[in-house]
Each structure stands twice: as structure tokens, then as C-alpha cells.
Amino acid sequence: MMYADDGAQPMAPLLEIENLRVTFDGEDGEVTAVNGVTLSVGQGETVALVGESGCGKSMTALSVLRLVPAPLGAIRGGSVRFAGEELLMKTVEQMQEIRGRDIAMIFQEPMTSLNPVFTCGDQIMEAITRHRVVSKREAREQAVEMLRLVGIPMPERRLYEYPHQLSGGMRQRVMIGMALCCAPKLLIADEPTTALDVTIQAQILDLLRTLKRKIGMAILLITHDLGIVAEVAERVVIMYAGEVVEEAPVRSLFKKPAHPYTRGLLGSVPKLDRKEEELKTIPGNVPSLKSMPSGCRFHPRCPNARSLCAKAAPALLEIGEGQRVACWLYGLPSDREGVETL
């Protein structure tokens, strides 16, 4: 396993998201899907972005490619820097050059993410010829090579098959092959295994890990499954209701989770060796974006909430080596006003 060395200098950041805000025009007014998210991914690093469904993970990821679904959704502020360059200032044409070449993305639904009317080969070759000057034959050879790389048997034949002729796992492999054909520096994987069954999940994660070693790209892995995180990520960013609540190296996070929400999430990870133990779940529901709680957005569900928590939102605070948390439990002297439990 490749844990980031806690004592080493931080790797040069490849992707830096700062204070990102994404909003949606809903039927009853504007909602903020991503509220001031800050995170970074180092060169060759694997960062997991974790949170319950609807907390804004996908919108954060799509913002990096500037693919937030317009016109309802829009990036309203903040900064997204890739290799030092501000992506939010790029023209549409410049972004189209970057997509697929420097930053690639794969999605949750392998069944619907490939175009049903084109062969797998055509779709991979299209990604190659979009960014590289190659002949059709070279593109085909490279496509076969990609299919072989992602572990698809008989790649020469699969090239001419349509997505509906492949299983979900095979399609996700094709998606990965297509994403990696231009050797991007960053791969954004938005819940790449959520729609697959458990054995296939493990195979796909394995594949991602192997390819990462071979190609040396960085991965922003989005998931709501902390079990996956422990296996592949070096650093973890936890999101709740559109905000980052904790960020830590994977070892610290599992050893001493700081945020009450993270602790809740860890408590609800099923442990195979402790089947009898009752599964801990976080009481309450994810707040709707329309009626967001004041102060700390987690306070209605938080077992440690104090009166202050409902009044003011805590900012991210460094509490240890690479570990930052947004919670009033940290950084306040305990005799301060409003610290009494609710």
C-alpha cells in the first residue's frame, strides 16, 4: 500500500480546488450544491472524495472539467488550478483540449456511459484521434493496446463490439481504457464501482491501482464507500452537505477520525470479522439543500453538538500532520461561551 509519508514534504499539487462554489437553479430558487470546497491532489497521488449521496462530490469533480450541467448549474466562485493554471479562466476551446488529454474522467454507470450506437473501438479511437495526430491504423493499434492494458480478453475482437454486447464490468474497463488512452496526468473516477457487483468491484479497483503504478497518474476517486478508500487512497477528503468537513492522510483518518461525521461514517463501515456487532449508523437524514441548517450543517445529526454549533459555521482547522477538520470540538478552549452541550 502506498501511504503518503507523513513526515515528507507535501507533493507538488497537481490540482488545487479553492473555495469552489456551485449553484443550481431549482424550482424554488437557487441552491448551493458545492459550498466553498477546498482540496488538492498531488502529482501521482490518489485522493478519495467521500460523502453521502447528494453531498456535491460529482459537482465538485465536474467543475474541474468545467462540465457542470448548464444552464441550471453554474460555477459561482472559487478557483480550480491544474498544474498551476487557472481552469476557470480558460476558454471553452482550451478546456476541450485539456479534457481527455490532461484530465480524464470515468463515471458511475458503465451501462449508460458508453454511446450505444458506436463500437467500443470507435469510441476509444475517437478519444485518441481527438488529441493526437495519428493515422487511423495507429489509432486502432493503440486502442487494441488500451483494451489489452485494461484486461479485456481478445481485444482485437472487442474493438468491433458494441457496448450492449459487453458486461457491466467489461464496459467499465472500456471506459477506463478510453480515459487513459492519452495518458492523462489526472483521472477523476466518479464512483467507478458503485454500480458493479462486489467481485467485479474488487477487480476494477485492482485495475485502477495497477494502471496508476504503470502510468503514474494522479487519481481523484469519488466514493461513498470508506471500505474502498482504505484500499486505494493515500489521502481522504470527507464532504458533508456541499462542504469539506475533514481532510486527512488515510492512516490518520482510520486511526483517529476527528469529525463526528467521519466517526459516524467509520462506524457504519461493515467489518467482515465482526459480523455480530450491530452496524452503527448516523441518525437523521442528509439535509436538503433548500433548508440547510444554520451554523455547522451537521449539527442536527451530531452527537457532540453544542449551542455554538447551530449559530456559527466552523472553518477548517489544522489539527495534526495533514489532518484538517471543520468542527467546534477543536481549537476552542473548553471554558468558552457556547461550549456546553446542546
Binding site: 462540465l67 481527455g100 488529454r101 463515471f107 456511459s113 458508453l114 454511446n115 450506437v117 458506436f118 480515459a179
Partner: peptide, 24 residues
């Protein structure tokens, strides 16, 4: 979804609409 994939590949909007979307 596959149009999201097409855009993520870096295809221009013209190709996304006229090729990937219209063919369907």
C-alpha cells in the same frame, strides 16, 4: 450519460450534438 462521457473526452459541442446525440 454518454454525452457526459463524450464531453469529458474533449469533443467539441458540434461533435457531441451532431454525432453522438443525433445518431441516437
Amino acid at each position: 450519460d454518454y454525452l457526459k462521457t463524450a464531453r469529458a473526452k474533449g469533443l467539441t459541442e458540434k461533435v457531441v450534438v451532431l454525432k453522438h446525440a443525433m445518431r441516437n
